[in-house]
Amino acid sequence: MSTLEIDHVSKSYGTLRALDDLTFDVRAGEIFGFVGSNGAGKTTAMRIMLGVLAADSGSVRWNGTELDLEARRSVGYMPEERGLYPKMKVGEQLEFLAGLHGMSPTQARDAVVRWTDRLGVGGRRGDHVEKLSLGNQQRVQLAAALVHNPAVLVLDEPFSGLDPVAVDVMSAVLRERAAAGVPVIFSSHQLDLVERLCDRVGIVRSGQMVALGTIDELRTTDRPQWLLDVGAEPSGVLARLAEVPGVTARVAPGRPHAVLATAAPGTPPEVGQQVLRESLAVGPVHEFTPVRPCLADLFRGVVSAEHDAEPTAVAPAFAEVAR
């Protein structure tokens, strides 16, 4: 199976360590979300994958062998900064780029028609790139990454500047490419999209991979939480739960009549039922639901340089009821 491997890659710019022993892979038919704060090293890693930058150490492999110049011709790359020639017409530029990847003129023209139509810019093939809106330039940039039928897709912030309709179109295209067996990696700050689209996610901080796995794996926590809607002043419930070993409780953010209870690591699983019993002893409980952190919460917790001494409760606005 086709796999893109980033193996112990490091890169420094003077005293700045941009990548520090970065290791992960992107598998055939997989959409991989590559997330991190600005300056975390995502773009540097992608440029090394493409050979635009050279790593100080480590390697990038495709199907078990070093990703050389010939193999890189089979990669579809979408840079964060648009890499299009603004004075060229859309169709001419895409045909030119397809030709650089070894396609014949006929193959290139057919591919350009296919992808510009698919991405909703078929009527703009005769327009100069500089005359397009930012969203349409982004669609053309994706067409440039797809036009040569790449074996792997590497996309840096592909959803930036897109309206909701364009986001849906691009999401569908990425799913189609993955369904065809293409490994797809993209970076994005739009974590709701990452959570919705990706099979696995890697979170990078200061050039290091600090969290890696499926969404379900990443959302599994050693600090389970429960939301209780007590329908009244929660002070009595808070006082009662303060007596439960290993449990901290607070008023849920944005829910003045709800309590968010958090168990410490290693607390027995049955403590959730104890939380409910103690709350019912005070009064009626209208809602009792486990909550798990969403990707945005995970990102905040992993990337933040500061960590509270107390367990961080997940705000219901950013959490999902466990299923």
Rank of each mutant, 00 (worst) to 15 (best):
C294M: 10
G301V: 14
E320S: 11
K131V: 09
A180R: 11
A108W: 02
L260S: 00
V275Y: 10
L155M: 09
D163G: 07
D297A: 12
G36T: 04
T248M: 13
F159G: 04
L260P: 00
A166V: 06
E217S: 15
A172H: 10
A166P: 05
H307C: 07
G58N: 01
H286Q: 13
A232H: 07
L227T: 08
A305C: 10
M49P: 00
F34Y: 15
R73Q: 11
P234N: 02
L298C: 10
S171I: 06
E306C: 08
H8L: 03
A98Y: 02
G39V: 08
Y85L: 12
A28V: 02
G102D: 12
H189M: 02
L16R: 15
R255K: 11
R175V: 14
D7G: 09
V165S: 13
E270V: 13
G14A: 02
R124M: 13
G99W: 08
V275K: 10
M103Q: 15
W226T: 03
I48L: 01
P79H: 00
G83I: 01
V35M: 04
A281G: 15
R17T: 01
A98I: 01
D229M: 01
R118S: 03
V90K: 03
R196K: 12
G41D: 01
R175C: 01
A28C: 08
S57K: 09
R109F: 06
V9M: 04
G161A: 08
I6V: 15
G91M: 05
L218S: 03
G246D: 13
V152H: 10
I185H: 02
S57M: 01
I48P: 00
L50T: 12
H101N: 11
V140R: 00
